[in-house]
Simulated assay, not measured.
Amino acid sequence: MARERSSLRDNTSAQIGIGTLIIFIAMVLIAAVAASVLIQTSGVLQQKAQSTGKQATQEVSSNLVVKSIEGIRAKNSSTSMAENISLLKMKVGLNVGSSPVDLNQMVISISDGANNNDLIYGNNEKSYGTAMSDFSSSASADTNLEKLLTSTQASPGDNAAYFFTVSKIRDEDVSFSQGSPIMNTGDLVTIYVSTVSGGDLGYTTIGPVTTSGSQKDSTLDIGPRTTVSLVFTPEAGTVTSVDLVTPSSYGTRETIQLYP
């Protein structure tokens, strides 16, 4: 019986000619275009990933901390005081490792249960199209506080209902000024919010400011047993909320500790 054998042959033939060359060049060009698209896409994705990571880090690291809140009553003398709180004095700092916070871009929402004010920093001229009436970047914090309590303009209206002011307590790196209120880790500031009510407009003094009875209505009414809600919303970072209930009686005290 004959044994069948098979043999393998090498195919040494190849495609030649101008047609083959054109196909080869086309394949090279397609591969180059595809590689260029991939490189460009990966670059865009990398940039977006870095930007998103930076924003996410800022969102979780920019945290305001409210250290304390005091309420100050307007007065004529030590025995003649307003029934309601006329000014909130809030000490605010930053958490350890927090990113810088620009108070010029922060919004403070305050509610007394019936009325609500959305307040911006006195030097912010973007939200309402104008800065706080009579605000000065070169003036002292007490001067700007006086203007917060006593000045008004046609739009948006009384400073007390639309703005807040700030003074620094600790600022080691000199990052804070009235014109550029930047807070870094370790900084401590006092934020002033006017809560003057309509029935307390005739008193002559509120805290360090002599108002001579010219203070403006904030539309808020913070009497005894009032639930007050404060929300601090920075440009970037987490929102800080504080809820408190005022004491059942203010007695003869000019300054009332409200928080903590």
Rank of each mutant, 00 (worst) to 15 (best):
S6Q: 09
S7F: 14
L8C: 01
L8G: 06
L8N: 07
D10K: 04
T12W: 02
A14F: 08
I16V: 11
I16M: 02
M27Q: 12
A31L: 12
V33A: 07
A34H: 03
A35I: 07
S36R: 08
Q40Y: 07
Q40A: 15
Q40I: 08
T41K: 12
T41Y: 02
G43R: 11
K48T: 14
A49K: 02
Q50N: 14
Q50D: 15
Q55L: 15
T57E: 11
T57C: 05
V60S: 12
L64S: 08
L64A: 03
V66A: 08
V66D: 06
K67L: 04
S68T: 13
E70Q: 15
G71W: 03
R73Q: 00
K75E: 13
N76G: 04
S78M: 10
S78D: 09
S78P: 00
T79E: 10
E83T: 15
E83H: 13
N84R: 10
N84D: 11
I85P: 06
I85W: 03
S86K: 08
L87C: 04
K89F: 02
K91Y: 10
K91G: 05
G97T: 14
G97Y: 07
S98H: 02
S98K: 05
P100H: 05
L103M: 14
Q105S: 07
S111N: 06
S111P: 06
D112L: 03
N116C: 02
L119M: 06
I120C: 11
I120G: 07
Y121S: 13
Y121F: 12
N124H: 07
E125N: 15
S127K: 13
Y128E: 14
T130Q: 13
M132I: 08
M132P: 04
D134Q: 15
F135C: 03
F135I: 00
F135V: 01
S138R: 06
A139I: 01
S140T: 12
A141R: 09
D142P: 00
T143P: 03
L148T: 08
L148R: 12
T150G: 10
S155A: 12
G157K: 03
D158C: 01
K168W: 02
D171I: 02
E172V: 08
E172R: 01
F176G: 02
Q178C: 05
T185F: 13
V189C: 09
V189F: 05
T190V: 11
I191Q: 10
V193T: 12
S194I: 06
S194N: 08
S194Y: 14
T195L: 04
G198A: 06
G198Y: 09
L201Q: 13
Y203H: 12
I206W: 11
I206H: 13
T211A: 04
T211Q: 08
G213H: 02
Q215K: 04
K216F: 09
K216M: 13
K216C: 11
T219Y: 04
T219C: 03
D221F: 08
I222V: 10
P224W: 01
R225L: 10
V228D: 03
L230D: 06
L230K: 00
T233D: 09
T233I: 14
E235A: 09
E235G: 12
A236V: 15
G237H: 06
V239W: 05
T240F: 00
V242G: 11
D243V: 07
D243I: 09
D243P: 01
L244K: 00
L244E: 05
L244W: 11
V245K: 09
S248M: 06
S248G: 14
G251K: 00
T252L: 07
T255D: 12
I256C: 09
Q257F: 04
